[in-house]
C-alpha cells in the first residue's frame, strides 16, 4: 500500500496585498492560506488513498506560524503531517526549499512511493520546487499533470504540454506536480477540523536537518506592480449604457 507525501506551502493570500504610496508592497492587512494548487495536491493524495489504501503525509517547510497550515492540511484528509519549522525558513529560495524538503523526506519519511506538489506556489509561482526536489532525490518527475493513476508499481499520468496531452509512465517512487483542474478540493467541515487536531504532527527543527545551502538567487527589489486606471463607474439604465458607449466612441474604440 502506497505512502504518499503531499507538499504544501503556507503563503500570504495575495488578494490582501495593497500597493503602498511609494510603490512598495503593503502587507499590513494580509491573511495566510495553503497555496491554492497545493489544495489540489492534497485532495489528489487523499483520493489515491481511497483507491489504494496506504497513508498520506502532508509536508511543509516554513516559519513556526505555519502551524495553522498544518492543521488546515490535516483537515483535508491526510493521516499525519511533517513540519520543518524555523523562523529562518522565511523567504526561502526554490533551491533551498527543495533541499530542505529532500532532507526531511530522506530522514523522516522514507520509504515513500509518490510525492505530490502543486504546479506552482501562489506567491512565487516558480514552478521549480517539485522538479528540483525530484532531482535531489534522484527520482522521475512529471509536471503539469491533469490526471494521475497508480498501477503495478508505476505512476501513469496525463501531462499537459503546449501541443496537447502526453500520457507518461514512470516507476515509483516518483514525483508529480498537479494542475488545478485535476480535482475539486474539498472544503473541510467542523468534523474534519476536529479530527485534524487528533492526528500526529512530526515537528522537525533546523538542528535536526543537515545545513541547508545558501540562496542562489537574491531578490534585489520587490515592488508593487502598477496599474493606473481611471476607475469610472456606470449604471445599467439606458442613459448610462449610452454614456458608456459614448466614452468608447470618443476613445475611438468603436
Amino acid at each position: 500500500m502506497p505512502t504518499i507525501i503531499t507538499c504544501f506551502k503556507w503563503v500570504i493570500d495575495e488578494a490582501y496585498i495593497r500597493r503602498g504610496s511609494s510603490g512598495d508592497l503593503d502587507f499590513s492587512a494580509v491573511d495566510y492560506k495553503i497555496s491554492d494548487y497545493d489544495r489540489n495536491a492534497i485532495e489528489e493524495a487523499v483520493k489515491l488513498k481511497a483507491v489504494h489504501g496506504g497513508t498520506v503525509a502532508s509536508l511543509t517547510v516554513g516559519v513556526p506560524e505555519a502551524t495553522k497550515g498544518i492543521k488546515d492540511s490535516l483537515s483535508r484528509g491526510p493521516d499525519k503531517a511533517f513540519f520543518a519549522a524555523d523562523a529562518s525558513f522565511n523567504n526561502l529560495e526554490p533551491s533551498q526549499t527543495a533541499s530542505l524538503l529532500a532532507a526531511v523526506i530522506r530522514s523522516f519519511i522514507t520509504p515513500y512511493d509518490l510525492i505530490l506538489c502543486g504546479e506552482g506556489s501562489s506567491d512565487l509561482y516558480t514552478q521549480q520546487v517539485g522538479p528540483r526536489l525530484a532531482e535531489i532525490l534522484q527520482i522521475p518527475s512529471i509536471s503539469f499533470v491533469q490526471k494521475v493513476e497508480l498501477k503495478d508499481g508505476k505512476v501513469v499520468a496525463e501531462r499537459r504540454v503546449e501541443e496537447g496531452v502526453e500520457v507518461v509512465e514512470a516507476p515509483l517512487p516518483a514525483l508529480v506536480t498537479v494542475l488545478p483542474d485535476i480535482n475539486v478540493p474539498r472544503i473541510p467541515g467542523v468534523k474534519d477540523t476536529l479530527m485534524a487536531s487528533k492526528k500526529p504532527v512530526v515537528t522537525i527543527k533546523k538542528e535536526d536537518l543537515p545545513p541547508f545551502p545558501a540562496p542562489c538567487l537574491e531578490t534585489v527589489e520587490m515592488k508593487a506592480a502598477k496599474m493606473d486606471r481611471s476607475c469610472e463607474k456606470f449604471g445599467t439604465d439606458a442613459a448610462e449604457i449610452a454614456r458608456f458607449v459614448d466614452v468608447l466612441r470618443k476613445k475611438a474604440l468603436i
Binding site: E14, T219, A224
Partner: peptide, 15 residues
C-alpha cells in the same frame, strides 16, 4: 512577477 502579479520581483543569481 510574484504574488500572482501583484509584485515585480527583481533578482540576480549568485551562482
Amino acid at each position: 512577477l510574484a504574488y500572482g502579479g501583484a509584485a515585480v520581483q527583481k533578482v540576480i543569481c549568485k551562482t
